[in-house]
Amino acid sequence: MRLILGSSSPRRQDILKQINIDFTVRKPHVDETQIKTTNPIEKVSALSKLKAENIPFESTDDIIVTADTVVSYNNIIFEKPKSREEAFTMMRALSGQTHEVHTGVLIRSKDKQTSFVETTQVTFYPLTEEEITRYIDTEEPYDKAGAYGIQGLAAPFIKKINGDYYNVVGLPIGRLMQELKSFSHKGRDLS
C-alpha cells in the first residue's frame, strides 16, 4: 500500500512523520466555498469527500486520505480567521468556554471507501484582552481553524480536553490507523 495524504497541512504531515509512516503529499485543488452547509459535522464530511474526489489514483496500491478540521462554538463554525479582528473575536468567544473541534476524514482505495468524523471538546481558561492581543500579534492564529494552535503558543490557554488531542491538531491518528487496518491487503500494510 502507498499512503497518499491529500493535504498541504504541515501539522497533518508532522503527525504522520511522528509515527514513522511513509506517505506522499498530493494537495487537492478544490473550491471549498461550494460547500454551503453551516452544520460543522456535515461540513467537514463534505470537504474531506470533495478533497478526496479531487485526487486521482496513480497506482492500484494508492490509499488516499483527506481531512478537514473546523472549530465550532454554539454550533457556529470558526474557520481560519481572515483578519486580526476576526482572530480577536474568535479568541474572545472561546475564552473561558468549551468548544468542539471536528475533523472529517475520508479514506479511499480503488475498491473501498470509508469516512468518519472525530469530535473533541476543548475548554479554554478565561483569557484577558492582553493575552488575546499578544497571541494574535503572532503569525500562529491565521492558518488555523478557530484561530489557535493547541500544539503551539496557545497551549497555555487550554484548561482541558475531552477526546483526541491529535484531532485538535488536525488528524485523529489513532482512529485513522484503526480504520486503515481494513485497507491492508495481501499481508502488506503501511509500516
Rank of each mutant, 00 (worst) to 15 (best):
M1Q: 09
L3G: 06
S8Q: 14
S9A: 03
R11G: 02
L16C: 02
K17N: 13
T24K: 15
R26C: 01
H29V: 14
T33I: 04
Q34A: 06
K43M: 08
V44I: 03
S45N: 09
A46S: 15
A46P: 00
A46C: 05
L50H: 01
N54Q: 08
I55D: 06
T60P: 15
T60C: 03
D61N: 15
D62Q: 12
D62L: 10
I63K: 07
I64T: 12
V65G: 07
V65C: 02
A67Y: 01
A67L: 06
T69G: 04
S72G: 02
Y73I: 14
N75L: 01
E79R: 08
P81R: 13
E85G: 02
T89H: 14
M90C: 06
M90Y: 14
M90Q: 12
L94T: 13
G96L: 09
G96M: 09
Q97A: 11
T98S: 15
H102K: 12
H102M: 10
G104H: 03
L106E: 13
I107Y: 02
R108A: 05
K110C: 08
D111Q: 12
E118W: 02
T120L: 00
T120V: 04
T120W: 00
T120F: 01
Q121G: 01
Q121E: 11
Q121P: 00
V122D: 02
V122E: 02
V122I: 07
F124V: 07
F124E: 07
E131K: 15
T133D: 15
I136C: 11
T138E: 01
E139A: 13
E140W: 03
Y142C: 10
D143F: 00
A145F: 05
G146W: 04
G149A: 15
Q151R: 13
F157N: 10
I158L: 04
I161R: 11
D164C: 15
Y166G: 02
V168K: 08
G170C: 10
L171P: 03
P172W: 03
P172M: 09
P172G: 05
G174N: 12
M177Q: 10
K181Y: 13
K181G: 11
S182W: 03
H185W: 11
H185M: 03
D189W: 15
